[in-house]
Nucleic acid binder design. Sequence first.
DNA 1: CCGAGAATGAGAATCGATTATCATTCTCGC
DNA 2: GCGAGAATGATAATCGATTCTCATTCTCGG
Lengths: 124, 124
Amino acid sequence: MPSAVPHRDAVLGLIRSLGRPVSADEIRDALRETGIGIATVYRIVNKAVEEGDLAKVELPGAPARFEPADLPHHHHFECDACKRVYDVPGCAKGVTGLAPEGFAVESHEIILRGTCRECSGVAV
Amino acid sequence: MPSAVPHRDAVLGLIRSLGRPVSADEIRDALRETGIGIATVYRIVNKAVEEGDLAKVELPGAPARFEPADLPHHHHFECDACKRVYDVPGCAKGVTGLAPEGFAVESHEIILRGTCRECSGVAV
DNA sequence: CCGAGAATGAGAATCGATTATCATTCTCGC
DNA sequence: GCGAGAATGATAATCGATTCTCATTCTCGG
């Protein structure tokens, strides 16, 4: 076990390799064999967010997810079946133009919901 | 005080008159003088949601809000300053087209954030 | 090999939102 | 005016997510 901070590397590596925002629970489960505790997962991702390495993705009614902070502008897709969240590249035109007169839009978020590719192909 | 269910009417009336999604706390505060309790507010809005009279609006990191269920398709604006949530009419084109191949989009949500009209006009 | 300081894990504690409990109050038909 | 049943409010309980605590373990320079 080389690395100076093995858990941190394992967590950030996992997040980068999955290519979608993952929750603390998902991280803990994926690294189950290392015996990592949920407190450590939170410690690592919180610090990484502070340091600008990770971005926190919050969706209604779901635990926070984490993804690399250097991704280009994108949005999210939440699967109704498996509850996983995926990145969707790009953005819709005219989004910020929707706001009524007098409202200053500083950021926006688009959340798509439905069935992901994996769940679509699987019979019940 | 006529009505058979005064609190229900007061709550639904308030929601309709404000024209924006309101949380249980906001409802209780607005109806403070009637002495309504938070439990009653939740009982009323939950039943109204079940009965199809209200829709629940959930935004990340905020308590659920409620608005009339019969509004046309629209989205929401959350003010960073006052935390109030407003309806924004209309929708952006091409939203559902963002999803990658194989993902079936069944609904979507757009959340704008920034400063609302009221907060924009007010100095710190 | 040794000790200081950082990191860890298990579980308790906390937090905000929501729901359950239960004694009291109110409504209405009679 | 009376009683059954619904509604209410205060508060305790719950829930899931997250953070805190603390004893233990690990890392490393010396």
